[in-house]
Computed example of a mutant assay.
Amino acid sequence: MESAPAVAVQDEAPDVASDVTPEAAPGTPPVVRLRRRALRTVGLIAVAAVIGLVGGTATGYGIQAEREPTQLPPLNEVGGLAYPKPLPRGQEPEPLSAAEDRQVKVNGDLRKLLLPRPNGARADGVDGWESLSEYVSDYTLPASALEHQLDLGIRRIASRSWLSGEHRSVTIELVQFRPGSMGGARVFVRDQQEIVGAEDRADSVGMALEGSGNGRSFIYPVQRRAGYTDLYEARAYVQRGDIAVVILMSDARKIAEKDIASLAERQLERL
């Protein structure tokens, strides 16, 4: 799990409203005084811009007032005015069924939309609802990650992890954001893709997930350490509405691109 981008907190600007400036040590540049002079210059430019705007507006009104008024045609001579009419009774479209209405599906039990574990796979880690505190604990900077997720409007997380074969580990997370939260799922997926792509050990571009819109998968080169089993990793991030789909995969053997792409495709079908 990658850390959310840290939020840089700037110090408050020094108070430059006072006319009393302490004596500076010899050779010390007058920082506050230079700042005040810059503010004055900006103020003069702003005043000039406002005066120019007001003058231009007044001139425009004067020119318009000297022109002859343009007569508009009567409304009864204006064609093409039409208003939508309700369909006759009995011809209204049928409302979407619960199976067809995606919003009904994603607002229900999100755990039911997770892919089931494959036959023979063993449960490993969270299987169901995951608390926000537990979710951000995997980040390098949990506090910053928590603040970032709350800003995006995170709503809830459903997660499922399993082990299959001898070493393959898979985790699928459905991270849902609140409707109208400025595209929280879209921003989350974009940020994660940029972070993963910026890592030295990941493909900076990734592979587009066909038919997913903005989904991409990333295959990491093998990590080898003396005394340890080789480690291969792959990740996929894709957005579907207000849900961000995250797929994490690791193995002691090379992971094929089709393996994680197929998993992402099947998970999207359930959404």
Results as ranks from 00 to 15, higher is better:
residue 109 D to N: 15
residue 238 V to E: 01
residue 118 P to F: 03
residue 59 T to S: 13
residue 201 R to W: 11
residue 38 A to L: 14
residue 48 A to H: 08
residue 212 S to R: 04
residue 247 I to A: 00
residue 35 R to G: 03
residue 183 G to T: 08
residue 194 E to I: 06
residue 139 Y to H: 05
residue 114 L to V: 05
residue 197 G to C: 09
residue 22 P to D: 09
residue 91 Q to G: 05
residue 216 R to V: 03
residue 144 S to F: 00
residue 83 Y to L: 15
residue 193 Q to G: 06
residue 221 P to M: 08
residue 7 V to C: 09
residue 204 S to K: 09
residue 122 R to W: 04
residue 67 R to C: 10
residue 140 T to C: 00
residue 131 S to V: 09
residue 148 H to Y: 15
residue 239 Q to N: 14
residue 255 I to M: 06
residue 32 V to A: 14
residue 67 R to M: 15
residue 164 S to R: 06
residue 79 G to W: 07
residue 268 L to K: 05
residue 28 T to F: 02
residue 245 V to P: 01
residue 257 E to K: 12
residue 128 G to Y: 02
residue 23 E to Y: 01
residue 57 T to I: 11
residue 181 S to N: 10
residue 62 G to T: 11
residue 83 Y to G: 06
residue 243 I to F: 00
residue 77 E to C: 02
residue 216 R to E: 04
residue 63 I to G: 10
residue 209 L to I: 15
residue 221 P to C: 04
residue 112 K to P: 01
residue 222 V to R: 12
residue 31 V to E: 07
residue 19 D to Y: 10
residue 232 Y to D: 05
residue 175 V to N: 00
residue 177 F to R: 02
residue 25 A to H: 02
residue 27 G to C: 08
residue 158 A to L: 03
residue 179 P to A: 11
residue 261 A to V: 04
residue 207 M to Q: 14
residue 193 Q to A: 07
residue 218 F to Q: 01
residue 100 E to Y: 04
residue 87 L to A: 15
residue 202 A to W: 06
residue 67 R to V: 07
residue 229 T to M: 05
residue 226 A to E: 15
residue 248 L to F: 12
residue 116 P to S: 12
residue 247 I to L: 13
residue 267 Q to E: 08
residue 224 R to W: 04
residue 223 Q to Y: 08
residue 148 H to A: 09
residue 16 V to Y: 09
residue 128 G to L: 06
residue 71 Q to D: 15
residue 215 G to T: 03
residue 251 D to Q: 04
residue 102 R to C: 02
residue 268 L to G: 03
residue 202 A to K: 02
residue 185 A to G: 09
residue 217 S to A: 14
residue 254 K to F: 11
residue 42 V to W: 09
residue 112 K to Y: 01
residue 134 E to H: 09
residue 81 L to T: 11
residue 196 V to R: 04
residue 46 A to L: 15
residue 26 P to F: 03
residue 246 V to L: 12
residue 142 P to I: 06
residue 37 R to G: 02
residue 218 F to I: 02
residue 65 A to D: 13
residue 8 A to H: 13
residue 268 L to Q: 03
residue 163 L to R: 08
residue 182 M to W: 10
residue 22 P to E: 10
residue 134 E to F: 03
residue 248 L to A: 10
residue 53 L to S: 13
residue 154 I to A: 02
residue 148 H to T: 02
residue 137 S to R: 11
residue 62 G to I: 08
residue 169 S to K: 06
residue 30 P to Q: 07
residue 169 S to R: 14
residue 130 E to G: 00
residue 184 G to S: 05
residue 180 G to I: 04
residue 152 L to N: 03
residue 69 P to V: 12
residue 166 E to H: 14
residue 152 L to Q: 01
residue 246 V to I: 13
residue 119 N to S: 14
residue 45 I to C: 13
residue 33 R to Y: 05
residue 129 W to L: 14
residue 17 A to E: 12
residue 252 A to F: 08
residue 152 L to V: 00
residue 226 A to R: 14
residue 155 R to N: 14
residue 217 S to N: 08
residue 21 T to M: 13
residue 206 G to F: 04
residue 248 L to S: 10
residue 185 A to K: 05
residue 211 G to P: 04
residue 209 L to G: 02
residue 246 V to H: 05
residue 51 I to R: 08
residue 244 A to H: 01
residue 7 V to I: 15
residue 104 V to H: 11
residue 97 S to G: 15
residue 59 T to W: 10
residue 23 E to V: 14
residue 228 Y to F: 12
residue 18 S to M: 06
residue 55 G to K: 01
residue 91 Q to E: 15
residue 210 E to C: 08
residue 225 R to G: 00
residue 6 A to L: 13
residue 203 D to S: 10
